[in-house]
Computed example of a mutant assay.
Amino acid sequence: MHFAPPVSRNRIISTFPKCYNPQACLQMKEDWSSKAKLACRDRSTRQQGLDRLKMSKAVVVGDLNVGKTCLINRFCKDVFNRDYKATIGVDFEIERFELSGLPYSLQIWDTAGQEKFKCIASAYYRGAQVIITVFDMADIKTLEHTRQWLMEALGENEPNTCFMFLVGTKRDLLSAEECQRTERDAVKMASEMNAEFWSVSSKTGENVQEFFFRVAALAFEDAVLKDMELGNCSVKIGDGGILKGDTAQQDSEVHAARKTCC
């Protein structure tokens, strides 16, 4: 039997991550739900199939040059590259976590913001559990476009199946007063979109890890709870039985992305 390597220490989530801004928080809680905790504590489930990782899919959408790739690279690779290169089509990263003692993976899909690549990128919106809509806090016009990006991503998925986040990047470019003003507008937009708002800086790393930990924790817990709601309690949590989305479809998407994207 093949066993996956241990999860990096900086990807272990032991406590439920808090929201950056309580005004934009859709999940007002400080701990896992009692049902999820009970499932994860069950010794018989934790000791079976832990080499097969559960996985959720997150798609990152938004205008050209708002910092989608920089956001992903800061979290996944802990780097910040000033030399901007537009994403062609789609790209992706896979991050492994440990939550409540169980392994978990997050596929993070980086989609192109250029109009000419929309027809390619939109195909990869399907099967998402998380939609991350990104705007540039130093360019308020990009905030106005986020609603359309979200609608396009939601249009490729079943209703009420996705967590939605609105992320403002480049907060390091704003003064404290400008940041507060932009955040007020963003919180209002997030409320209209039924999304949770975060403000980050890929350059300094501010709030980046906290944001992705929040994404991973909410998606993981949702996967556990939905599996229990469907009556799959006999399926062992951690054995791949609550793998979100169609595995064959995700494998084909990964293969296609490797062939077509830079």
Rank of each mutant, 00 (worst) to 15 (best):
L166C: 07
I88A: 09
E156K: 06
L71V: 00
I131G: 12
M151F: 14
D63A: 15
R126W: 08
K203A: 09
I72V: 08
F197P: 10
F220G: 00
G245R: 08
R184W: 01
Q209A: 12
N81H: 05
K259N: 04
V7S: 01
Q129D: 15
V60I: 15
N21A: 11
W109F: 09
E93H: 07
N81C: 09
C179K: 08
S56M: 06
D185Y: 12
I94Q: 12
K226M: 12
V167G: 07
I13W: 13
T133Q: 13
E95H: 09
R52F: 11
V200S: 10
L106M: 07
S234M: 10
L102K: 06
G67V: 00
E93P: 00
C76E: 10
V215E: 04
S191F: 11
V59Y: 12
F165P: 03
K226E: 14
I12Q: 03
F97W: 03
S33K: 06
R258K: 14
R126K: 14
T133A: 15
D78M: 02
D63P: 09
M137G: 10
G168R: 15
E192F: 10
A176K: 12
N21H: 14
C262V: 07
E196L: 00
K54T: 10
S105F: 08
Y20I: 00
L174P: 09
G245F: 06
I132R: 02
I94A: 10
V235I: 15
E115L: 07
G113I: 05
L64T: 08
C162G: 00
K203T: 02
E253R: 08
I72W: 10
N207W: 05
Q23T: 11
G240R: 13
C40T: 00
N194M: 12
F220S: 03
F16W: 13
D42V: 03
S234V: 08
E115P: 06
K203P: 00
N10R: 04
S252L: 06
F220E: 05
A39C: 04
D63N: 15
V60N: 05
I94M: 13
D246E: 13
V59P: 08
T204L: 12
L174D: 13
P22S: 04
V200I: 11
Q209H: 13
E210H: 05
K141H: 07
L106S: 02
E30P: 05
E178L: 05
C179L: 07
M151D: 15
F97D: 01
D222I: 00
L166W: 07
E210T: 01
